[in-house]
Amino acid sequence: MKILIPAVKVGSFETEIHENFGRAEFFAIVDSENNRLSFISNTAKNQSSGAGVAAAQLCVDKEADVVMGYHFGPKAYQALKAAGIKVLDLDQQKLLKEAYNDYKSGELVEAQAGPGAHH
């Protein structure tokens, strides 16, 4: 399984999760086959329009199986679901390793689309 998590910087499993899916600086990619961690820059983060859609497109292009985060806008959520990606809700977790551990122990639930940011 390929898991994408919004992250504040390029780092390690000790790195903090970014609070916002579309505007995250980076995405951490965890391969659950071998527990390998890598990072990609979120090219959508500075888009003035449709950042959530563009971030979802990035996850689709990276062939993510699972995306997790604290909050998803309705459009990003719709795009991820259309791609058959599992969208999981984070809450108490602060660090990547906490999110990943909770995922492995099956504690995460499916996210709901949150209210989108209005401009």
């Binding site: 449709g50 859609v53 563009a54 979802a56 497109q57 459009k75 719709q78 259309a82 791609a83």
Partner: peptide, 16 residues
């Protein structure tokens, strides 16, 4: 970013 290519389908996000 009103369009996304998902599983070979173009999705239109009309509000965007």
């Amino acid at each position: 970013n009103a369009l996304a290519l998902i599983l070979d389908n173009v999705l239109v996000f009309e509000e965007v």
